[in-house]
Amino acid sequence: MAEMKNPEETTKTLSRRDLIKGVIAAGAVSSAGYLFRASGVRAQQPSAAGSVERLVTITVNGQQRRVDVMKQETLATTLRYKLGLTGTKLGCDRAECGACTVLIDDVPHYSCSVLTQSVRARKVVSIEGLASADGKLHPMQQGVVEEQGFQCAFCMSGFIMSAVGFLKVNPKPTRTELAHGISGNLCRCQDYDKILTALLKGAENMRRA
């Protein structure tokens, strides 16, 4: 029992600043969340004074990407529809399921509820950014492959990103701690037992790597 960390305590080891930033971003969900493509006909008005710059630079998977975004555009939309990174999934588009989870400065966020404008000058990592350039899988991905984790895998990218983020603050979690750490992600196949086994295997791989 002494071994087991209180999962609520674990979250406190995130900096308060990170947590607050996450909350603010999550609170700023645009009502146009599932609408996209700023280049659309209606959006082509000249920028008014004091309006937000449309052409922004974001760092995604280690690369600087210049991208034209609407002010109400979510990060999930930008990743999927502007940058072609379709590994990030939209399951609900309202911060309920976690399928769109990505890391922003190493902290898991629901990218459906983060405005792209808010991640300028921050580091975004999506599922496509985990494996190395030569195709070698990240130890977490390797763990999932080894244990045949997940069924339909629509939730998989989100779970993996949540787990990788959680392990940065608690690299050696118990089964219960990891379950708490990834409890913001929903699996409708309900493959939770095998998912947890696979992610723990990934955690073990990460410690060895």
Binding site: T86, G87, K89, E128, V145, Q148, A153, M156, S157
Partner: peptide, 21 residues
């Protein structure tokens, strides 16, 4: 016997394409 199915790597790397992709 347990084994790894051949669709796993595409799934864990985000390369697996669902209808919306």
């Amino acid at each position: 016997k347990n084994y790894t199915t051949p669709d796993m790597v595409a799934k864990v790397t985000g390369k697996s394409k669902y209808a919306e992709d």
